[in-house]
Design a binder for these strands. Sequence first.
RNA 1: GCCGCUUUAGCUCAGCUGGUUAGAGCAUCAGUUUUGUAAACUGAGGGUCGUCGGUUCGAAUCCGACAAGCGGCUCCA
Length: 596
Amino acid sequence: MGNTEGNNHVVGIRHSLAHLLAATVIEMYPGAKNAIGPAIENGFYQDFEMPEPISDEDLPKIEARMREVLKTWGTFVRREVSPEEARQQFSWNQYKLELIDEFSKDAKQLTFYTSGAFTDLCRGGHIDDAKEIDPRSFKLTRVGGVYWRGDEKRQQLQRIYGIAFETQAQLKEYVAMLEEAKKRDHRKLGQELDLFVFSDLIGAGLPLFTPRGTVLRRKLDAFVQEMRDEYDYQEVTIPHITKKDAYIASGHWKKFEEELFRITTREGHEFAMKPMNCPHHTQLYAARSRSYKELPIRYRETTTCYRDEQSGELSGLSRLRAFSQDDAHVFCRTGHVEEEALKIWDIIDRFYGTFGFELKVRFSTHDPANMSAYSGSEEKWLNTEQQLLSIIKQKVGDNYIDGVGEAAFYGPKIDFMAKDAIGREHQVATIQLDFNQPEGFDLTCINEGGDQERILMIHAAIMGSIDRFLSVYIEHVAGKFPVWLAPEQIRIATLNQDDEIVHFAKDIAAKAKSLGLRATVDADNESVGKKIRNAELMKVPYMVVIGGKELETGELMPRIRQDMEVNAEAHTAHTVDELLKTIVHESKSRVNKTSL
RNA sequence: GCCGCUUUAGCUCAGCUGGUUAGAGCAUCAGUUUUGUAAACUGAGGGUCGUCGGUUCGAAUCCGACAAGCGGCUCCA
């Protein structure tokens, strides 16, 4: 692990490269204006207003020119200037002028940094000398469109991204990681492994899951529901459309009206496809008066939600217009919150632990500077946040990330981020404490004193969206699903098309199916080598070849997918019963190792 | 939604600057072969070149709109 000094140094390199990129682009494209360009994780970027749009194909020549310009650069020279002088220098660049106006509000002097023939307005943070940059340790990666200052109402600029490290070896390592990520891309694997498809006829963001993909969904969902059953969740079922009144009461209408799929009935009534499930579930709770003795009431349901997402936001299974949530709502009193949240947390730990994900916790709170984005008084916000914080402290101490402004509009959340096998983080599970919808829907219980008491709701999704979880999980395991999830658990291939051999293979498959396994027979007229290759490509965990030898001895030599843990004697002959029994055991125990 | 790029057979991709019946590999189908742990051989079928419109004597190729996808931005209950 690098020390702090080393880390600052690489940040300095990245920052300095952003300057170099700005200098190079301005030189190569007369009329180009640079806006901002900071160091970021693994690299840097620089925003430009370009006279003509550039594309990815332009990057190699910009990169080559950067290396030339770099040779002319030396120490970074700092100079303090007055705002007036700065304005004069950058009169050609309205972006810098805007920054100068802003910075000069609280500073009398601004700073310029110069290396080679290039000077930029900058607060600092470079390395001392541009000669410290290894010209082989950076690379321009992509160009994208961005809004000036991140505001979609303002000018659109072009951003050039680069990656940069202290050494060429580190750059190579990072490039290798990106290539590995590309190989694992769930959109690619989804097609190769025959898990899901999209159709132009059906529409963007509307995934169609194949039989194989559906196995994955059902097994994952069953796992979550099995754990919820332990904690007395009750399964419910709701329709997928609703009158808009439900969203007016919940507060969603005000905030998400634009993102709803709306339906007008022939009688002119307005409905919407449900974008979430809480309003429906509240009505199950509110169907009759509830005694405090009944609480907590826990509803769970895996069901599809529909949101009219912006077309540019759709991406594989990560962002969809129709997606399925493994949703649950707990209706309870303040005194129940801690215990209920801990139960959910336990399910989350067990679920993600099973897959080898490392979890990080984010405490997602309201942004005091932006209260208009939230429902309810700030006092109530602070109150509920305190409740969640004490739970977080209890579970992980100070080991959590502050997510100011990351709350839902109706309440604070505990969000969980999973770190995958190649080090990327994804937001997954969530526990949300909601004091607003119980108000909106007037949810109460009759308390010990016989009075109506306002209750609280906890929203909890373990996978969040099954679809999005799948996108993360497919990439995490690179499509090599453990036996309990594998759409095809064992493939029985015949050596040839001899009747007796084919019959034996079919008998084994029938036996496997009777034990609840997912087995297939490959009796095609193909070479053994080809059949093995096909099974490998589909990442089937177990494969056996049946020939005369097997017919004679009744024993099988399993071919076990390489990522699975095995014992020494795994790759020896086993009886059919022994082999199938093992696979059944692995199917139930949810481990990715064979007990052969 | 915004900026940029892309779209040729089920999949992966050729097709130069517009010019007679649009190609390959894999997959599929048929025949041959009857195979021992990651690709047997031969042959056949399959595409109105994303859709619609325009320019042109002539469009897969140029222009426009729309759709879908990719990389970003914005958004994310």
